[in-house]
């Protein structure tokens, strides 16, 4: 079947299988930041923005994304660099494999809620697993980022 998806601002037309998952479709289209960490919708590594909302691209059919607008970290490099620098300054990126999904969801969170409380941060990002950092360094990065943004 044929679909048309706006990936990171560009219209992409493709012929796909009905059961192609959005994650594989995106990776086939060069969005290699999108990672698969599990098959059970539990890890958050594959988070992308679909029509502005963070979703698990491993659990969405590419077919359903027909006509929608998708953003991956490839399309949000400026935000990734701005916030990512705070993560890197903590050494909290560690292996890095969960970073794209985590940063995607941080971006989504801050678009929904400019000044989240500590509990709101932890709850919003609870679906983003990280095995390296114990989360504390990621949390410091978010707090520092918010503080710096607030100071501006």
């Amino acid at each position: 079947m044929n679909i048309q998806v706006k990936i990171n601002g560009k219209n992409v037309k493709s012929e796909i299988d009905a059961d192609l998952l959005l994650i594989d479709y995106l990776r086939d289209n060069g969005c290699l930041s999108v990672k698969r960490g599990c098959e059970t919708s539990n890890c958050g590594l594959c988070t992308v923005l679909m029509n502005g909302k963070p979703v698990l691209s491993c659990s969405v059919l590419a077919a359903r994304a027909d006509g929608s607008e998708i953003y991956t970290l490839e399309g949000l490099q400026k935000e990734a660099e701005e916030f990512g620098t705070f993560v890197a300054n903590q050494g909290a990126e560690q292996c890095g494999f969960c970073n794209p999904g985590f940063i995607m969801n941080v971006i989504a969170m801050l678009r929904e809620n400019e000044n989240p409380t500590d509990d709101e941060i932890k709850e919003y990002l609870a679906g983003n697993l990280c095995r390296c950092s114990g989360y504390e360094g990621q949390f410091r990065a978010i707090k520092n980022f918010l503080a710096q943004r607030g100071a501006k």
């Binding site: 930041s33 890197a88 050494g91 890095g96 940063i103």
Partner: peptide, 18 residues
Amino acid sequence: KPIMKKDAMALVMGKPVY
């Protein structure tokens, strides 16, 4: 010292390195 990892920015920006 708290030196940033040499590969840190590539990792946080989702570069294809795995």
